[in-house]
Simulated assay, not measured.
Amino acid sequence: MVITVTLNPAMDKTLCIDNFSLGKVNRSSKVRHDIGGKGINVSKVLRNFDVDSICTGFLGGLWESYFLEELKNRNIKTDFVSIKGATRTNTKIVDHLNRIYTDINEAGPEVSKEELDSFIGTFKELCKAGDIVVLSGGVGPGVPKDIYGTLIKIAKEKGAITILDAEGPLLEEGIAQKPNVIKPNIHELEKLMGERYKSEYEVIKAGRILVKQGIEKVLISLGDKGALLVTKDAVYSCQGLKVPVKSTVGAGDSMVAALVYSIIKEFHQGDTLKFANACGAASVSIEGTEACTLEQVNSLLELIEVHIKEVNGLIDR
């Protein structure tokens, strides 16, 4: 089973406002609502890929029943812990005219120690040997920064595969428990390593450091410049695809879903990177945080070329 963890879900409200202006009255031409949170987004994509998963985490307030009903309608299983606080709303402002995309994210509800302990108990019950566990996104107030490290330790002891997609202290604390796979974007990687990278070679070196620390795969998103996949034996790279951008939200989550799908289908590492890059490109061409389909992803695969940049420590510069 695939388990996706979303500790701070959000209702994603997308407003389309051409020529959005600060300090003025703006009128939206279109509004849409999508259930979101990084783990939930991963499950939405996997469902479109005909892969079952179960969503867990925290839900509360007015949006709780809406989330559960929507996930049920999508045939996605759930085992959330209900909390007293209200699930947040994140607002996305899309200005197609100027190609500017603005996110306004709420902090999220306070989580009590009792609610956190209840979730950890639920998580322990869910995890089984051979499961793929996706831990992604931020956390709300009251959730410790080492939570992903705690969950990775539990999952690994159960014999599950772990994928971590987080940033800042959550990522730093999480990798201390050596998840199988991590997916930082370039900015998250720079923050983690305390560096600013000026070349692909420097990014590869950073990925190699993380692999030497015990992480099997490091998928690094470079935005419109493509992506890198660093493993113990080789480094793979591919260029970004030029697609019409309708929303930048959820592209990374689609790449995480691609990692899950690649593990299930036993893809070669190069094909894993190609599939992940296609998932990210397909995602940005869709409005809101709606999930890309396998058909959309497959239509982009032939446009992507993957190159081996390094084999057994030898870098092609």
Score class of each variant (00 low, 15 high):
K92V: 08
F80K: 03
I93W: 06
K92S: 08
E70Y: 01
T89G: 00
N73V: 07
Y101S: 07
S82T: 13
E69K: 14
N98L: 03
N90F: 05
I76R: 04
N90I: 04
K72C: 12
I100T: 12
Y101L: 10
V81T: 12
H96T: 15
T89W: 06
T91A: 08
N73Y: 11
T91D: 05
T91W: 02
V94T: 12
D95K: 07
S82H: 13
T87F: 02
K92Y: 08
D95W: 06
I83M: 05
Y101H: 13
G85Q: 04
D95V: 05
K77N: 10
L97Y: 13
T89F: 07
I83V: 13
K77W: 06
Y101Q: 15
K84M: 15
K77H: 11
I83P: 00
E70L: 03
R99Y: 09
E70T: 15
S82W: 01
N73F: 12
D79W: 02
V81R: 07
N90P: 04
V81S: 07
V94A: 08
L97A: 15
Y101V: 08
V81D: 04
A86G: 01
N75L: 12
R99F: 08
K72E: 12
K92M: 06
R99L: 09
K84D: 11
A86E: 07
E69W: 08
L97I: 09
D79E: 12
D95Q: 07
L71Y: 06
N75C: 12
E70N: 09
I93P: 02
T89H: 04
L71M: 14
A86K: 00
N90C: 15
L68M: 09
N90K: 02
I83A: 05
K84G: 09
N75Y: 10
I76T: 06
E69S: 12
I76P: 00
L71C: 08
N98I: 03
L97Q: 13
I83F: 00
E70D: 13
T78R: 02
V81P: 04
R74Y: 14
R99Q: 10
N98Q: 08
A86V: 03
T87D: 02
F80A: 04
I100P: 06
L71S: 08
L68H: 01
